[in-house]
Design a protein around this nucleic acid. Structure first.
Length: 263
DNA sequence: CTAATTTGACCTGT
DNA sequence: ACAGGTCAAATTAG
């Protein structure tokens, strides 16, 4: 909630803007390469380094995660330093009585954790998860698994995810990521080398390359759908309070409109 | 033995 | 009250 307005904020906002666009373009490039690789697997043995589909997907997710992290950090989401199991601070609502048998209590409802859903053929991302629950869901024949980051108590990482099998394609998993990783767990090798091809500015300028149509639903190709959900972020009327250029805002809004809200 | 998973009870919001 | 999400003791895996 602390918002110290300093004059370096606009500079940092500009820098964040650049970082956001960089990350988004990186993710878009990785997604494009992934789609091309899935469409034509014979292209994989060219002279340059061709990443595997899992690497590309990991790059996509990393880029999106980074971009969203930058956005939310610029909004108002102050990352709390370390939240080891606190000694009974807030009692939360619920009429005083906390528990009768277990002594649990104090569930923390996620207030502004951003959520997005990935439909993929694998549940592997480059993060260490620990399963903490599984529930059967109504109108779903497969249960839902609840996982949290392995560094929840190490470093107070608040990232969680839920994995559920797709009912139509049982070899597809619908993974819902909730919250950002604040731990230092970095992917083992997320070093993508898409340099020297095009800078992000030139990519934005030469945006007429989008003549390809994503029409690859003929056979069981692992499609990837990313949706996002912001619970309640900015209901104020004026959305132009940021110092972003209108063109970049249109880019961002285009990006936002490309993903349909979930729930 | 240590760490991760399983599993049913418990908690919370609708 | 119900359905979804979480905790933690018991169990299993490394």
């Amino acid at each position: 909630m602390v918002c110290p307005e300093t004059e370096s904020e606009s500079v940092s906002l500009k820098r964040k803007k650049v970082m956001i666009m960089k990350e988004l373009v990186k993710g878009q490039e990785a997604a494009t390469q992934l789609m091309l690789l899935l469409e034509n697997p014979s292209w994989s043995d060219t002279d340059r380094d061709s990443l595997s589909s899992q690497e590309l997907m990991a790059n996509v997710l990393t880029s999106f995660t980074q971009a969203l992290s930058i956005i939310t950090a610029s909004a108002d989401d102050v990352i709390p330093p370390l939240n080891l199991h606190s000694s009974g601070d807030d009692q939360c609502s619920g009429s005083g009585k906390r528990s009768q048998k277990g002594g649990r209590g104090r569930y923390h409802r996620r207030r502004s954790a951003l959520t997005w859903t990935v439909l993929s053929s694998t549940t592997e991302d480059n993060h260490a998860w620990r399963k903490y629950g599984q529930k059967g869901i109504l109108n779903s024949e497969f249960p839902r698994s609840y996982l949290r980051c392995s560094h929840k108590y190490d470093q107070g990482c608040k990232a969680t995810k839920q994995v559920q099998r797709c009912e139509e394609n049982p070899d597809m998993y619908q993974t819902t990521y909730i919250g950002m990783h604040t731990c230092n767990a970095k992917p083992p090798k997320a070093t993508h080398s898409t340099t020297n091809s095009t800078t992000w500015e030139s990519y934005l300028l030469n945006s007429d390359r989008d003549s390809k149509v994503p029409n690859v639903h003929d056979h069981h190709s692992p499609s990837l759908t990313i949706k996002r959900e912001f619970p309640k972020e900015n209901t104020s009327s004026d959305v132009t309070d940021h110092n972003l250029d209108p063109s970049l805002w249109s880019e961002l809004k285009d990006f936002e409109s490309s993903i349909q809200p979930y729930h």
